[in-house]
Computed example of a mutant assay.
Amino acid sequence: MFAMRPYNNRRHNLSSYNPFREMEELERNFFDRPFDFFDDHMLSEFKTDIIDHGNEYVLEADLPGFNKDDISLDIDGDVLTIKAERHSEHEEKDKKNDYVRCERSYGSYSRQFDVSEVDTDHIKAKYDNGVLKLTLPKKKEEVKTSKRLQIE
């Protein structure tokens, strides 16, 4: 297996030729950062933006490569959970695939959000071009009224 990297002219300075440079770099990367081979994106959460539009919040989550059926939205109390699950193609096919490199991450990803200030009965969700967009209307503020009580 080999890594395909862009050619960097500065790395190969002919005046300081070192035939062991690549081996030293491999060793340094392995022992200094042993879990980098998992790739930062593979183990990280999906990224979201939350925008306050005054009467509603808009949450946009980047979920590229997911099918709409692989995304679930659940509300339990005041917690919204967004969960997305992707299955590996090479898990489902026989082992005769000709993969040279397999970097795409597979597995289950989830994030939770506090929705205590949101009218959860009127949340709208849309998934288009790898972006999940949730419109989260804010709860209406209860207007406190004053009244006079009669004494019996």
Rank of each mutant, 00 (worst) to 15 (best):
D98H: 15
G77A: 11
T135K: 09
V100W: 15
Q150C: 07
E142N: 12
D70A: 06
C102T: 07
I82V: 15
K96A: 12
D36S: 08
E141F: 02
F38C: 01
L149E: 14
R111E: 00
K147Y: 13
L73R: 07
F113A: 01
H87N: 14
E141W: 02
N97V: 04
D39S: 14
E142I: 13
F66N: 02
M4W: 10
D98I: 06
H122R: 09
P64V: 06
D114H: 03
Y106I: 01
F113R: 03
N18R: 11
E85G: 00
C102H: 13
L73G: 03
I50Q: 13
K126I: 02
K93C: 08
L136T: 00
D36M: 11
T135W: 04
V100P: 09
N55H: 13
R104F: 07
D39F: 14
D62A: 09
L136V: 01
D32P: 00
L59A: 11
H122D: 08
N9L: 12
F30C: 06
M23R: 15
K140C: 04
G54S: 05
G77F: 06
D62R: 10
D121M: 11
G54F: 06
R21I: 11
S116W: 10
E103G: 10
E85H: 04
D70T: 04
N9G: 02
N9P: 07
C102E: 13
D78Y: 13
D128T: 10
E103Y: 15
K124F: 04
H53V: 01
H87M: 11
I71S: 01
K47C: 02
L136M: 13
R21M: 15
D76R: 14
E56Y: 12
R86G: 00
E141V: 03
I151K: 13
I51G: 00
Y99P: 04
D119F: 01
K133E: 09
E152P: 08
F30W: 09
K93G: 03
D32R: 15
P34A: 05
N9M: 10
N13T: 12
K133S: 09
D49S: 09
F37W: 12
V115Q: 03
S15F: 11
R10H: 10
F113P: 00
S116H: 12
K144R: 08
D49A: 14
N55S: 14
V58R: 13
I75R: 07
F38G: 00
E22M: 07
G130F: 09
L80S: 02
E91F: 11
S88K: 08
M1A: 11
H90A: 06
P6C: 04
S110Y: 10
H90P: 01
F38E: 09
S116Y: 08
D49F: 04
E91W: 14
F46K: 09
M23W: 11
E22W: 09
A3L: 14
Y106V: 03
V118Y: 01
K95L: 11
S146L: 12
A61C: 06
K133F: 02
I82S: 00
R10K: 13
K138T: 05
D36Y: 08
T120F: 03
A3V: 06
N67A: 10
N18I: 07
D114A: 01
K68C: 01
R148V: 13
D36P: 03
T135M: 08
K140E: 15
R148G: 02
V131Y: 10
V100C: 13
S110D: 08
E117T: 12
T81G: 03
D76Q: 13
H41R: 14
M23A: 15
D39N: 11
